[in-house]
Design a protein around this nucleic acid. Structure first.
Lengths: 234, 234
DNA sequence: GCGCACAATATTGTATACAATGTGTTTGGG
DNA sequence: CCCAAACACATTGTATACAATATTGTGCGC
């Protein structure tokens, strides 16, 4: 496992959980990956106490699963969870986008456009993981603009889980071109057109949701089992 | 501080956080109360390690605030947070109630009616705290019936925070008679009337939200300060 | 050679010891 | 008598030692 920000000697629980969270979000850590405590405490130069705090924090966000006496693993959301996450986002985000459109200041617009620019740059640089991370941040930014910190926190968690869901269930056929939808959203927000912003966000989320593969995929830990059971060629 | 379930010797982090959570929900622990680690580890007969895990869990749910080098305190949501929490609930719960109405089985109805009965019993017994706790569980139960575990988890957190908000900002004039609204909701759900369930939940939440005191209350910890500054009489 | 039981190892769970920080008290000076 | 600085105390933060559990490896019997 290779992680950035692995400075030795001066990391606290937040920096570790943030680093892991970002790594997961950018698909540098795949679902099912074991996150050993000793391993992480070596990497970050802190005791297991701190590492455990960080892992518990990630577990609360449901992007890490802690199995008793087995350790921490990057979560593998089930297909049911995947649908639930997007359904929750569809309840929260459209109305929040409406509010954001009514509250947005010129500075906010600049910030959002900056996001898009970076997103585009990452995409052109071939760094799909970073583009995905940035597109998630875009959604959180909208909740912040709506002056709804509580909803922003909830969306933050849902987006982290969405990243795992995309890693597991994304259909390769459908291209992940979020920047177009985001661009349209910025325009609606800039025009203070709440209704349009709400509609755009709604359809954007429906698009994402419908681009998921409907068939249940085998979990990484289950891969071995299913392969040994003979269906390796499928 | 006096807490139930204080068995010595066999508690894990979950039992402690659940006990504290319930105590907070039932208003046996007031906002601002200091939750000392040694104190809790004595009460539950475990080391501070376990207590800290429990407190961190509650902090993630935002019903406990951990101040670095100062300790853990029962959270004191600001008025802005209070509004945000109810706005989030208004986005999530009505639509979820609709789904529940369409999914509910006869067993579910029985379970909900059971809830109401207990709620009523607690109210008659003068145990307002327990009635409040049960009424919260009622809302979570609806999300469960809607087959939306993710949303149920979110609502669970929001309701815990709502309990703190009620403790801080409730107007005494307005009676807290939720069982009527809940009764009407059960009827709509029993009739599989999704639209009506959604409407009822919406108005129920608006009622709760509008029953908050609009003026910011002084935080408990600030009481001392403001008294020492001379405005003791206000 | 195969399967099961047992032992060795590695990893996590818990408790405790020590360090760091904040709080309250006491004492000295004005 | 009041204020301030320094000290003592209490509490939290972190690291480490030990215990419990799961996993892996080995050897014995069949």
């Amino acid at each position: 496992m290779k992680l950035i920000n692995a400075k030795s000697g001066s990391a606290n629980a937040n920096t570790i959980s943030d680093a892991l969270s970002q790594a997961i979000h950018e698909h540098r850590l795949a679902p099912g990956t074991k996150l050993g405590e000793d391993e992480l405490s070596d990497i970050y130069g802190v005791s297991r106490t701190i590492v455990r705090t960080a892992l518990q924090s990630l577990a609360h966000h449901q992007i890490v699963e802690i199995k008793r006496n087995r350790g921490a693993f990057v979560a593998q959301p089930s297909l049911a969870e995947a649908h639930e996450v997007f359904e929750a986002r569809e309840l929260l985000e459209p109305r929040t986008a409406r509010t954001a459109a009514l509250h947005a200041t010129p500075d906010d617009i600049v910030l959002l456009q900056d996001h898009i620019t970076q997103e585009h740059a990452a995409m052109n640089a071939g760094d799909r993981g970073r583009a995905l991370y940035l597109s998630g941040r875009f959604h959180i930014e909208i909740a912040r603009i709506a002056n709804q910190q509580t909803i922003a926190d909830i969306i933050n968690v849902l987006i982290a889980r969405s990243s795992l869901i995309i890693a597991l269930y994304w259909r390769r056929e459908s291209a992940l071109c979020e920047s177009q939808a985001h661009h349209a959203l910025i325009k609606a927000i800039n025009d203070n057109d709440g209704t349009r912003a709400e509609e755009l966000m709604q359809s954007h989320l429906v698009d994402l949701h419908s681009a998921l593969n409907l068939s249940e995929l085998p979990a990484v830990e289950q891969d071995l089992k299913s392969m040994l059971l003979g269906d390796s060629g499928r």
